[in-house]
Write a protein that binds this DNA or RNA. Structure first.
Lengths: 197, 197
DNA sequence: GTCTATACTCAGATAGAC
DNA sequence: GTCTATCTGAGTATAGAC
């Protein structure tokens, strides 16, 4: 279920109800296909309260994206902290990304596909935010330690994680014949061939 | 400029004016931020004619996507036809993709990011359409000829072209320090390391 | 076939009671 | 702080003249 993705974010119970409803509806139908009355019906919170807390619809979207990015980032940090070298971190991060896709497919579809620029004019893509930069940094450290071949870090991140993101998209699009997990080892193996010294 | 992307598509002059305006506006502001009056102003075609030819806004979007996919596919075919082996085809396709991104950034952003499902409920992602399948087939042929390592073709395509797509996105997001072309050789080299026998 | 004028719906946002 | 009732305008779509 998508409604428990935001776990440790701060906010009053009422705010959390609205934010989780927004996440679920935006992920499911898209931002523009979700009306405020939809949110009222889904969250059980009145329209007055929603506007009181978030200002307007864009403000709600902004608050939601903020917490999504933070949640993703915190999860990433936890994954990275469990491992000590670049290769195991790479694999663990890829596994975590795939698991998120399986557990919260609509949310991941929302994160991967939605052009947030279309409804949040001044926001850059989620994937160019802190979250993606941490992926990059993991590989940068691997270069320092000699595990990862010397190359441009952005290219390394694009090659290493771009393939994972692509497989996630293909899975979400229903293009893959077999479950996503079946492809995992081969995918990681191929990615690491491009990265290793 | 984005307004000449659709070159050889069929349709009356009036239809082409509308379709090219739609492409430009959808790519620039997004489908939902583009109103029919916007299209009228930009194309110079009256609202009555637009509805006469395309039925409704969704019909217009459908007609546009149809031609976009066709245009992309035809260009791909032309690129593939120029080369005889998998490696050179891989490089040529990647170069063509990057060049499109440089020449038509908003259009490519539209293709890469937009969740077309949000406004075309029954359409799958553009990248799971014919266009992406041809990328896959090029690598499948490479496996038959022995150039490409035996592996799942979807994984191969995701690794080989996912990295290219990712670099294109990073470029469009303005995250890259240097011009996209600077990264090209390193990107292709890394991608091919993952694919070669 | 193309246009102008218009109807209708409904989403976003606010006012003000409680 | 939360709610209900209401306003306003934008946007889709149609009718019908030419």
């Amino acid at each position: 279920m998508a409604n428990d993705f935001l776990q440790r974010v701060d906010g009053s119970p009422l705010q959390l109800k609205v934010l989780n409803s927004a996440l679920q509806l935006f992920a499911d139908k898209g931002y523009f296909n979700t009306s405020i009355p939809d949110l009222v019906a889904h969250s059980g919170v009145s329209i007055g309260s929603i506007y009181k807390h978030f200002g307007d619809k864009e403000g709600l979207a902004r608050a939601l994206m903020e917490r999504l990015v933070e949640e993703i980032y915190q999860q990433q940090l936890a994954v990275v902290a469990e491992y000590g070298n670049a290769q195991s971190r790479y694999e663990a991060l890829a596994r975590w990304m795939c698991q998120l896709t399986l557990d919260y497919p609509t949310v991941m579809g929302f994160l991967l596909y939605a052009r947030h620029q279309a409804f949040l004019p001044d926001s850059s893509s989620i994937c160019s935010s802190r979250a993606f930069m941490l992926l990059r940094d993991v590989l940068a450290q691997g270069m320092l330690s000699g595990e990862v071949r010397k190359m441009d870090v952005m290219v390394a991140a694009a090659v290493g994680f771009g393939s994972v993101l692509r497989m996630m998209q293909l899975h979400l699009d229903g293009v893959l014949d077999r479950p996503l997990t079946v492809y995992f080892d081969e995918m990681i193996d191929a990615g690491w061939r491009a990265l290793k010294s």
